[in-house]
């Protein structure tokens, strides 16, 4: 393959390597640097090829939201927050609320993002997130209904990337799912005219919400208490890099930049394949390669579900 020849022709690299410092070699010949590790079936950070980085999920860190999650996938950090607002359901689906997903990469997260111009990656990840959340049956929009045809909740799910070190989509999807598991729908009181009043949470000192009119017990209104959503199976994504014969799971930013092709697989725990995303790339993936990626995703799925359960327990323990 001409591509290989091109890389191989920098054989000068192999000779110079012995006399050069590691960091300099890494900067000048990044692909060869990574390949040296791959040939020994490890990654530059010491991981075996198919393993994802250590993952941390913390729920409920942001008191100004109705649900939030902070996810760390290695160095990649995402902060997701859900805020609920009242709205009128649309004419075509009067029994459903809405969910609006917005993924943003503020300039702090990456040297490639400049203020004023949204990052290219942000747009495509936004699209993918909306699609995956719509196809996965994580959230039944009918749960967001208050009164049919009159009032419902719109869940504004905002995800901010705080540190972009590869596998952004995986981390973002995990953050979305985790934030939705943390989401608490506030209690409401609905009076006869259909006007909805939010019962403000009591005892939150730093919750500097505008005091909603407190609803007295004497009013003849229908009350719905605050509740959590019942969620379907959580979708989990795993991004794999394909490079020559190797498959690397959960790439870092360095690996993503220099290696050849990405494949992202999203599945849920009912063993359903939700999405498969392969945006071009130099390598044409064979069916067996794809099946290998799916197998890696299955393993990852179990890991992530365990992490989410632990995070929920930690939150409940607080």
């Amino acid at each position: 393959m001409s591509q290989d020849e091109g890389i191989e022709s920098a054989t000068g690299a192999k000779d110079v390597a012995s006399s050069m410092e590691v960091e300099a070699f890494r900067r000048l010949f990044p692909v060869q640097y990574i390949e040296r590790y791959l040939d020994a079936s490890v990654r530059p950070d010491g991981r075996p090829l198919g393993r994802a980085r250590p993952t941390d999920v913390v729920l409920g860190q942001v008191p100004t939201t109705d649900g939030s999650a902070l996810v760390k996938l290695g160095n990649t950090t995402m902060l997701a927050g859900v805020k609920l607002e009242l709205c009128v359901p649309s004419g075509e689906s009067p029994d459903q609320g809405r969910i609006a997903v917005d993924f943003q990469m503020p300039p702090i997260c990456s040297p490639h993002v400049r203020p004023g111009r949204p990052a290219e990656d942000a747009c495509s990840i936004n699209e993918q997130l909306s699609n995956v959340l719509a196809s996965a049956q994580l959230l039944d929009l009918r749960e967001l209904l208050i009164t049919s045809g009159k009032s419902a909740w719109v869940a504004n799910l905002d995800i901010y990337c705080l540190n972009a070190d590869g596998s952004l989509f995986d981390a973002a999807l995990l953050a979305c799912a985790a934030a939705l598991t943390d989401l608490q729908i506030p209690g409401v009181a609905i009076d006869d005219d259909g006007k909805v009043q939010i019962v403000s949470p009591s005892g939150d000192q730093d919750q500097h919400m505008l005091d909603a009119e407190k609803v007295s017990d004497e009013s003849k209104s229908r009350r719905i208490d605050k509740r959590r959503l019942t969620l379907g199976p959580v979708p989990v994504a795993l991004t794999c890099m394909l490079h020559k014969k190797h498959i690397l799971a959960d790439p870092t930013a360095e690996e993503e930049t220099y290696l050849q092709t990405t494949v992202t697989v999203a599945m849920d725990s009912s063993d359903k394949l939700i999405s498969l995303y392969k945006p071009g790339g130099l390598i044409v993936a064979t069916t067996s390669t794809i099946m290998d990626c799916i197998a890696l995703t299955r393993i990852r799925l179990k890991e992530v579900n365990r992490i989410l359960i632990e995070a929920a327990q930690v939150k409940a323990g607080d």
């Binding site: 942001v62 100004t64 939201t65 939030s68 902060l79 927050g81 805020k83 607002e85 917005d102 503020p106 300039p107 203020p115 504004n156 905002d158 901010y160 919750q207 500097h208 919400m209 505008l210």
Partner: peptide, 12 residues
């Protein structure tokens, strides 16, 4: 450059 997240303030 300074940015606020949409949930930084109680009113989104």
């Amino acid at each position: 450059d300074v940015k606020f997240t949409s949930f930084a303030t109680p009113l989104r």
